[in-house]
């Protein structure tokens, strides 16, 4: 169980780091906008990581990641009027985070 908690925490921290950096580069330069990105990740990352860890399956991982992109896109559309294409932003930021994580795993 401790390994599950560690996995959840590390995944969340890395996601916040990667997506925060991506959002900053994409124009989220105020603390309010960066806070929204952080809250959106707190909303989706823990349940996705928990389910994918308990039930490892590439199909489930893909489905959960797509669901996260959808949910985050909806939140950005509602709350981030500074984003012209909220769903594209959500897709890009999640793809960046996912592949950055894969690359980090590979390098380590």
């Amino acid at each position: 169980m401790s390994r599950l908690i560690v996995a959840l925490l590390i995944s969340l921290l890395l996601t916040l780091l990667f997506e925060g950096a991506f959002a900053f580069l994409a124009g989220a330069r105020t603390s309010r906008r960066l806070l929204l990105v952080a809250l959106v990740n707190l909303l989706t990352n823990p349940p996705v990581v928990l389910l994918c860890t308990l039930f490892p399956s590439p199909l489930l991982t893909a489905a959960m990641e797509l669901a996260a992109v959808g949910v985050e896109g909806l939140v950005y559309r509602t709350c981030a009027d500074w984003l012209r294409r909220p769903f594209l932003f959500s897709l890009a930021i999640n793809a960046f985070s996912y592949f950055a994580g894969l690359l980090l795993n590979h390098l380590l």
Partner: peptide, 25 residues
Amino acid sequence: ALILICVGVALVVMVSAVLIVILYV
């Protein structure tokens, strides 16, 4: 232990959702 973890995750999700609604909606 697993139930506690699930409850913890659910709490984080709920608090985040509430904060998003309060701060941004």
